[in-house]
Nucleic acid binder design. Sequence first.
DNA 1: TGCATCACG
DNA 2: GACGTACGTGATGCAT
Length: 938
Amino acid sequence: MASNHLYLVDGSGYIFRAYHQLPPLTNRHGLNVGAVYGYTAMLWKLADALHKADGPSHLAVVLDKGSHTFRNDMYDQYKAHRPPPPEDLVPQFPLIRTATKAFSLPCIEEEGFEADDIIATYTCRAVEAGWNVTIVSSDKDLAQLIIPGQVDMLDTMKNERRSSQYVIDKFGVGPERLGDVLALMGDSVDNVPGVPGIGPKTASKLINEHGDLEGVLAAIPSMKPSKMRENLENNVEMARLSRKLVALHCDMPLRQDLDSLKLDGIPPEPLREFLEDQGFKTLLSRLTGERPMPRVDLHATPVTDATAPAAEVEARTGMPALPELPPIDCTAYTTITDEAALDAIIAEAYAGGLLAIDTETDALDSVASGLVGISLATAPGRAAYVPVGHVSSDDMFGEKPPQLPLSVVVDKLLPVLSDPAVLKIGHNIKYDINVLARHGLVIAPYDDTMVISFDLDSGKMLGGHGMDVAASTHLAHTCTSFKDVTGTGKKQISFAHVTLDRATAYAAEDADVTFRLWTRLKPRLAHEAATRVYERVDRPLIPVVAGMERAGIKVDRHKLAQLSSQFTQEMARLEEEIYAEAGHPFTIGSPQQLGVVLFDEKGLKGGKKGKSGAYSTDVTVLEKLAAEGNAICRLVLDWRQVAKLKSTYTEALQAQINPVTGRVHTSYSLTGAQTGRLSSTDPNLQNIPIRTETGRQIRDAFVAEPGHVILAADYSQIELRLAAHMADVPALKEAFAAGEDVHARTAMELFGEVNRDTRGRAKTINFAILYGISRWGLAGRLEISADEAQAMIARYFERFPGISAYINETTEHARAKGFTETLFGRKTWFPQITNSIQHSRQGAERAAINAPIQGTSADIIKRAMVRMGPALAEAGLPNVKMLLQVHDELVFELPEGDVEAAKPVIERVMAHAAEPIVHLSVPLGIEIGTGPSWGAAH
DNA sequence: TGCATCACG
DNA sequence: GACGTACGTGATGCAT
């Protein structure tokens, strides 16, 4: 028996939510239609489920009409505090009606009645008739209507069906008692008063104890005296009124009967016209069947139109549009296998003064991999591939393809690669510098289109600044993907096994694309005031970082192995104890299983969180439970720490030791962090433990060669110093100038006394300021109430007035211009800062507050790195090698005998790295330590 | 592949 | 009408 299933769409509720959660979108009339688009896509999805299991057989959209309802007659404050809808949402209301009509769906609205009551009435009628009902809404009031097995709710934005279990999880009572709980809680949005001091937890507790609201009110005299009893006594009538306000009414007059809501598919014509008018192309193409149905990701931010940048750049900077480039043709490239052809392209490079270059290797690691081929481009479309390390491919039956000997290619390229008259262009040229350095080749001068792209557009390019993203953004070109050439997974082959024609098409394209990118991006540097940061900070850093990667750092394998076995024993011991506490073995590393053990089996209270609905078992939760005396939590915390150290550090690090050099060579990304910081991968040497004693032991495995020592030099409190300078805070500047303990000084200003507690709190607040504070966040960190946190922030701003001005000016600038700048002019873009979704926007604001500070710090240490080599050489210390950078720290390896001479040079270079471009009003403090290992140098 | 967790500045 | 609580990273193990 096919049963009827009625879908009731809460259109008014949906549009508010869609407005805040979906990206803004403009139709051809210039109207913002983001919410309408979301609504249209949702209706499409619902209508499309017609006849599917759980899909609708009947459907109606219900809208609010007018603002005065019988609830206002009951309580004049009802919904009184609600702010007027945002300006660009208002014109979308009528479009909702238009959209619904375009789908030929019934649209129900009654003057003087709220959508909720109409939905309730239809639900009751349908239930009486034995139908199933799905209410498409996320309004918690409507959850009162849920009936297990017959009525449920659908949240289309989270793609989540909600049954009575959802109500029980969220409100502690079933749908039939939800009204009583809501009445006690009140609702600040609808201005339902409720009872002060009673939130969801207390409300559900009371209702579960006393049955319903009247039961609770009747029980007041038997309650023991408390603030809560007092609140209840004083608000009996308010509670009764609230109960009436939240109650849903099933007796509204219905103009359309149930059967008239039948859904019979959607006539295409009015819909097509509507979609065309609004410019909803994706939906339109689905309607006309031009393209297979792509999955619409409603949350995706629209990507920059690949053809737009030139015009956009022109509009923004006045830079004239550049001439068109010829189309990219991957079949037009040549494979160079004889000397004459190589000579010819080198001659072209000399003639034009430009040579784009890209190297292909047999692995991703620039220090360990072998050279397979080099591609060269001398003009857009004019590119060639020089294979040098290809071996037999599958279809060549073991025949090695013809190619020039590596030594010949190296000899021929050597002069042009270092010729000052030929600019070499690479995309991530650090990689090529390292690969070619192992064959004695030096590249100079050079440009790097990846770094240029980063210096122009940091924060704008969602997928990073790699070749594929850069090509599609700036050239509207989709590159041949590496995986298309080499395959993927088990079938993946090394580039050395790729046939020459395929290799040429792929590799020469990269050189061609690099050349084209340079023609597009290089001119923008000057027009967008990014030349200084590129030429004075980032470009000169490239060979310096390349050198650090090649140098690597010596790691004591035995020390790591010894730690590993120590950790293994420790874990085994903890495991046993944990299993004993739990009563059975389980996978401790599985947060899911751990959650079951702690919260279901042992009954600890910790609640669920996160959209997956899983229990959270992170440190903050476990620490709290451990402090309450739950032994198992402390054991799990200890186990986690040791497991982390073992898997991420002692084990993985041993595997990363290069068998040839006996050292670990990390790879730094110059474009990975939006603020301008470096990042480190394979392995990440910027997160080696230091905060705990056990973890610190890992640093002891980073050692110097015999006769040498490790020297670590740190900027002390550099970000706080920069904040003091940039926000112009006299009290902080004085403290730094006098060499005082700034956190203590802050504690004095805020609390009037300095002790361990106040200094610790002051330190937290100082950091909070750098990260863009919210009272909620600070409250959580300090374990105080939001009000107290608010008072503390107010006091901070009062004592350090420059700070609040800095925050306001920085966010204002970011909003107006779209980016922030460091003292050296490095830009970071914040496209989300005008996002209509509140939390996206606020996230961008916090990041914008932090970026100038973090970014200036990055600029300074980068300048120190650039100057360090020449300064040491000039001081007669060529054997001092810079190995690592960890954001505010530089790590060196040097002969023992050089230590005393090197210290003042390193100190001076770091302390004065900002000059002469920037003069800081605070000194930069440097702390230096030395020892046989990295651990000992701290 | 996504999520949770945790290592660093 | 609901959200989710500090900035910036990268690596790992589990579960799907």
